[in-house]
Design a protein around this nucleic acid. Structure first.
Length: 558
RNA sequence: UGGGGUAUGGUGCAACGGCAGCACGCCUGACUCUGGAUCAGGUAAUCUAGGUUCAAAUCCUGGUACCCCAGCCA
């Protein structure tokens, strides 16, 4: 029996680590999260972050944040800052902050070692020639005519490449492995290319830069990484990863393991396409609340806890899979229900006049801040003769099962009084513009003195102190559940949901909500969770819909 | 048509030769001053064909389907 009862139910990575620790393959665990600073982090990265930092923490090890900045053509400082910020926000601390570029000297030395050992050569072929001679999936490649160069000649040429003597694209350094390998990655992969670009950290020091396959394992070796965790598409690269490690003297031998990346319904995860959404102005920026970026989720009002919880709930395996956004939303609601301050906001106001309300009278009532949290206390809400209710809480001809307001029907105003609809006032075009109701003045607090049951309870806003607010209602950016199911000839832009953002300019919110500080989170009762946008002010409050409440009536209506 | 992977309810993950389980979703019902939350219940799965075994999701053999690989990207 390989495992006792206590070690059951581990995911495959935990199993590997547990075994390695038990068998003395390693004494402690070192992982790393290795983003390329060429874009913003998204929810897919969050899975990797939770795995790498989480595993290290779980086994008492360390996890480094390492920028894999080997391609100066694509990388920028703006991205490294956003990445650090996002990782911290998610709640993780790195043991060391590392950059692949810090290892360029060592990497270069190892390249020289490979050349000296006859295991790397300078190829003068063009990119096109190299591609053609690589062969195909079914046909082996051909050796380069430059493959047999002497170590001396290779050394000379490579040093001259490094000195900037040759133009970009004219020469590369390749590993000498096997042009007939079934694994295309082993067909003499390019390991250094000439790039006359300024690097965000090393400036103009280099004009040759290492390729990912060559560099990555060495970076792990330098940092003492024990378990180098990456996504499935690198499985074919593992023999190469091992080859580089085996063919020079490294301080430590790391191993690579692969897991299935996250796919999410209604969500695009491609860095390139996300960049395009930003640059074409389809969204307002990387942190548009509809973006699946970490900063997008943050601005949308998601919490780091909920994202971590989600990453835990989806688990980790090697089978391609598609997680449902509903699970993410569940994780968020689960937390916000316990923690979010409640408030009343009327998104689409309909005026209601309480006909028998004493003229000039203003009542003040207690309202719980959060019924799920007994320590949250209460606040005062005030009410007078003229109030507003939600337009959709009134139906002139109520459908079966509609237990809100309708002519002749009674309903309770949350925390306040029971009212009854007496009269419907419309404008010339037949639109309902105002309701005339009577109020049961003996029902203060919400309970009928005669004990009659009132099924419907509505949220409301008193005209005397409600504050006008802007509310952004966000939904899925795309209409397609599985974005890889796009029809032939169609583009992801063909699936944009025109209603992914609905702006409400004149919602009415109670005063506590208007006082919100940017990023404060609330439950707008009977609507959902909202957070104050980062440019919200008490004079002009702006709220973003984070996630709606579950709505069984609305579902029934659909 | 080469190589590398993966197949368990609608979705995601367990079960490591011994009663297929958990979560989300969905559907009932109870309760409710949020049609929320909560509570109780229900629905629903081992890709396929053989074989080994008292016993197979698990082991063996043969199929099938899907994903990845022909960047001087990572």
């Amino acid at each position: 029996m390989a495992f006792d009862e206590g070690s059951r139910n581990l995911n495959f990575l935990e199993e590997i680590i547990t075994k390695d620790l038990e068998n003395g393959v390693t004494e402690s665990v070192v992982t790393r999260f290795p983003p390329e600073p060429n874009g913003y982090l998204h929810i897919g990265h969050a899975k990797s972050i939770c795995l790498n930092f989480g595993l290290a923490k779980q086994f008492g090890g360390k996890c480094n944040l390492r920028f894999d900045d080997t391609n100066p053509a694509k990388e920028e400082t703006e991205y490294v800052e956003s990445i650090m910020n996002d990782v911290k926000w998610l709640g993780f601390e790195w043991a060391n902050l590392c950059y692949a570029s810090d290892y360029f000297d060592q990497l270069y030395q190892w390249a020289l070692d490979l050349i000296n050992a006859g295991k790397a050569y300078v190829d003068d072929q063009s990119a096109e020639e190299i591609r053609q001679k690589r062969g195909t999936l079914t046909k082996p490649g051909e050796d380069s005519p430059y493959r047999k160069r002497s170590a001396e000649e290779n050394l000379d040429l490579f040093k001259r490449m490094t000195a900037g003597e040759f133009e970009e694209g004219t020469r590369v350094l390749r590993a000498k492995i096997d042009m007939s390998s079934n694994n295309l990655n082993m067909r003499d992969p390019v390991i250094y290319r000439i790039l006359k670009r300024s690097h965000h950290r090393t400036g103009d020091k280099w004009c040759v830069y290492p390729m990912y396959d060559f560099a990555h394992g060495y970076e792990d070796a330098i940092e003492g990484v024990t378990h180098s965790i990456c996504t499935l598409e690198f499985q074919d690269h593992r023999p190469l990863y091992d080859w580089f490690i085996e063919n020079v003297d490294v301080p430590h031998v790391p191993h690579q393991y692969e897991f299935a990346r996250l796919n999410l319904t209604y969500t695009l995860m491609s860095k390139r396409k996300l960049l395009e959404l930003v640059t074409t102005g389809i969204v307002s920026g990387w942190d548009d609340p509809r973006m699946p970026t970490i900063c997008g989720f943050r601005r949308r009002g998601y919490t780091p806890e909920s994202i971590r919880r989600f990453c835990k709930e989806i688990g980790v395996a090697k089978a391609d899979s598609m997680a449902e956004v509903e699970l993410l939303q569940y994780c968020l609601r689960e937390q916000l229900n316990r923690t979010a301050q409640r408030g009343m906001a009327v998104l689409r106001p309909l005026k209601v006049v309480l006909e028998n309300w004493p003229e000039g009278f203003v009542d003040e009532l207690d309202a719980e801040n959060n019924p799920e949290d007994e320590n949250s206390g209460s606040r005062k809400v005030r009410i007078g003769k003229e109030i507003y209710i939600e337009r959709e809480d009134f139906m002139e001809e109520p459908l079966k099962g509609f237990f809100r307001l309708a002519p002749g029907m009674e309903v309770r105003l949350k925390y306040a009084y029971i009212i009854k609809c007496k009269e419907v006032i419309k404008n010339e075009s037949g639109e309902v513009t105002e309701l005339r109701c009577t109020v049961d003045m003996d029902s203060r607090g919400g309970d009928a003195p005669d004990g009659r049951k009132i099924k419907g309870t509505l949220h409301w806003a008193w005209a005397g102190e409600a504050v006008k607010a802007k509310v952004n209602l966000y939904g899925h950016l795309f209409t397609l559940k599985n974005m890889s199911d796009m029809e032939e000839g169609k583009d992801y832009k063909d699936y944009l949901d025109p209603n992914s953002l609905v702006v409400i300019e004149d919602a009415l919110v109670e005063p506590v909500l208007a006082d919100a500080k940017p990023m404060d989170k609330f439950q707008f009762m009977r609507h959902g969770y909202f957070c104050a946008d980062h440019d919200s002010t008490p004079e002009k409050p702006v709220f973003n819909l984070t996630v709606s409440l579950k709505d069984s009536w609305g579902k029934q209506m659909r």
